[in-house]
């Protein structure tokens, strides 16, 4: 824990340093590729945007919980969730928004499609099982929506959530802490790079797909990657 704290202090110091000067001696700024751009990186990895929104919503709700008596919180939470789940249009919009649910419209409709188990021979049982399974899937999707992308007491959740201020420093540092070593593309491919070797065909993918037993055994990806128009991650040479 102590080490972790120490690390965060270093990051914090880096953050302050980054604000105050862009001097080349700044170790963190130096470690980022020269053409690194936070906006592009976020575009390529909307999940980084999504987790910040998710955390914001959770933080908002917990602050609300701490500031009012328990009974008041419980009441407004149940009232709010009732309104939330009644508004299907809103739920679909959140579910399918690339920065929120991140799913496609087809995913939503697919939730309601019965998927009977073809191996089951008893028709009645097969149908009832399929209904149970479908309801479970729908419920879990709705539960996840209302517990993650829902601001208690706020009617227009989407617009507020989309205005969540994004901590760009956290995003750029994520590339150094995790993205780079795991072969995340940090920019779009240009020119000849569009035809460069896809990362999937490199041996590092195979190595990394097996979970390392310990931190020291983890093999870092030392290459840099770009993403082509189709979203294929390719090596920058």
């Amino acid at each position: 824990m102590k080490k972790l704290q120490h690390y965060f202090m270093v990051l914090l110091a880096g953050a302050l340093g980054a604000c105050s000067s862009m001097s080349v001696t700044d170790p963190i700024a130096e470690a980022l590729p020269a053409d690194f751009n936070v906006a592009t990186y976020l575009e390529l990895h909307p999940e980084l945007h999504m987790v910040q929104i998710k955390d914001y919503a959770a933080d908002y709700n917990s602050q609300l919980k701490a500031s009012v008596p328990d009974s008041v919180y419980k009441k407004s939470k149940s009232d709010d969730e009732l309104l939330y789940t009644a508004d299907t249009t809103k739920m679909i919009a959140i579910y399918t928004h690339p920065l929120l649910g991140g799913h496609s419209a087809a995913d939503w409709t697919n939730l309601f499609v019965l998927k009977p188990d073809t191996a089951e021979t008893d028709i009645a049982k097969r149908d009832s099982l399929a209904i149970v399974k479908r309801d479970k899937a729908v419920n879990s999707a709705i539960n996840e929506l209302k517990s993650t992308f829902n601001l208690i007491g706020v009617a227009d959740d989407i617009s507020v959530l989309l205005q969540t201020p994004i901590d760009e420093f956290a995003v750029s540092q994520q590339f150094l802490v995790f993205g780079k070593s795991h072969g995340w593309a940090y920019r779009r491919c240009v020119g000849a790079e569009e035809a460069s070797i896809p990362r999937d065909s490199l041996p590092i993918v195979k190595i990394q797909s097996n979970k390392a037993a310990s931190y020291s055994e983890f093999v870092e990806d030392t290459n840099l990657y770009c993403s082509d128009a189709a979203g294929v991650v390719r090596l920058i040479q």
């Binding site: 972790l4 704290q5 965060f8 202090m9 990051l11 914090l12 953050a15 999940e47 980084l48 999504m50 987790v51 955390d55 649910g101 991140g102 799913h103 901590d167 956290a170 995003v171 540092q173 994520q174 802490v177 995790f178 795991h182």
Partner: peptide, 22 residues
């Protein structure tokens, strides 16, 4: 005091990744 925690995130396809949580 602001600091960053390395936190586990899950994307829409269920892939696990690490991000920095302020």
């Amino acid at each position: 005091k602001a600091s960053y925690n390395a936190t586990q995130g899950v994307d829409k396809d269920g892939n696990v990744f690490v991000y920095l949580k302020p």
